[in-house]
Design a protein around this nucleic acid. Structure first.
Lengths: 191, 191
DNA sequence: ACCTGAACACCGTTCAAGT
DNA sequence: ACCTGAACACCGTTCAAGT
């Protein structure tokens, strides 16, 4: 890459991070280009689709989340690892409001720039789920796709202004559906 | 209302129903006006916001759903009534793709034209939930807002193209989190 | 009273013309 | 090679002018 192109690339990413933090996942591409002092067409050559931009934007975060799955697998009992990672996943998507919609649709679209990271994320979760299922602490009638779906749905939910404050409670409700032999009424369980 | 205004009103609703079925909740207002052979400004006087249009569009469906809650309360045991109604609710929002997002945001916005119907829907569900809780078949650490939230999240989820096919399974997973004393692994329960 | 067309400030996409 | 500006076809909102 030419050095001026490289400069534009990193400049765009930097600005996109700020603008997306402000306006969420539907932020205007035009505004990102404008704020980066770059032609709109330049933005679109570096990132031909919105998904491509987010792929670059979230790359680090996703790597970290996948890494975290491996660490939890080594350090925690299966059921706790699964719940903790689930919670982390929901919290992560909360950073960029609306990003879970991008992930959910990428999941079904192999042409999306987010398809690969999406698959990697799902695999990381599936591994934790399988381990808990083998131990008998996670229900056996669900798979990695279900886990990913529930995580997406929950992320969407806590991204809605009216429901954000109940985030922890929702995570508790859903994880108690995933785990077996859990007391699932009256009070929250300590994790 | 003048008779020509009345004619435009019902014409707009009729056309909107079709266009929204085609393009979902983000359908272009301009296109609705265009197809109805009506000035765009006319559409906006009849329905000053997108929410106002949907309030009119969904009024019948919502009435039916609330009515159904009352019928289920009379005809079925508390736990079954709750689950059946939950399932109906999810199925309903599936009619107009994306409408659950409108509902979720209306829930927190008293100025929205959808606020009142949204509240009515939540109350209908809360009543069924309370009845099951009193009987001991629904978990006690959730309320009507939680029920509404889970219903919204599930509606969103089955509205995503990649997850639509698993709709029934997701409903099973979530309802088994809501009900107590349910076998929540290995096989689906017959309802 | 109700309707209309046009103007406004946006959006993402595309592409010929510049360096 | 890479960038740019302008043109294009959209969008929702607003409002003066018509009947």
């Amino acid at each position: 890459m030419r050095t001026d192109a490289q400069k534009n690339y990193s400049r765009l990413l930097e600005v996109a991070r700020v603008v997306v933090e402000e306006h969420g996942v539907d932020a205007s591409m035009r505004e990102i280009a404008r704020r980066a002092d770059v032609g709109l067409a330049t933005l679109f050559r570096h990132f031909p689709t919105r998904e491509a931009l987010f792929e670059a934007l979230l790359h680090m975060n996703l790597e970290a989340l996948i890494q975290q799955a491996a660490e939890l697998e080594a350090s925690s009992p299966p059921d706790q690892a699964l719940v903790s990672w689930f919670r982390e996943g929901v919290a992560f998507t909360h950073t960029y409001s609306g990003v879970c919609a991008l992930f959910a649709s990428a999941h079904a679209d192999p042409n999306s720039a987010l398809y690969a990271p999406c698959t990697a994320l799902r695999s990381a979760g599936a591994k934790l789920l399988l381990r808990a299922q083998a131990e008998g602490t996670a229900r056996k009638d669900m798979d990695g796709v279900d886990l990913f779906a529930l995580m997406s749905a929950l992320s969407w939910l806590v991204g809605q202004p009216g429901f954000a404050s109940r985030g922890d409670h929702f995570v508790h409700l859903i994880t108690s559906a995933i785990l077996t032999n859990q007391p699932n009424n009256d009070s929250k369980i300590a994790i």
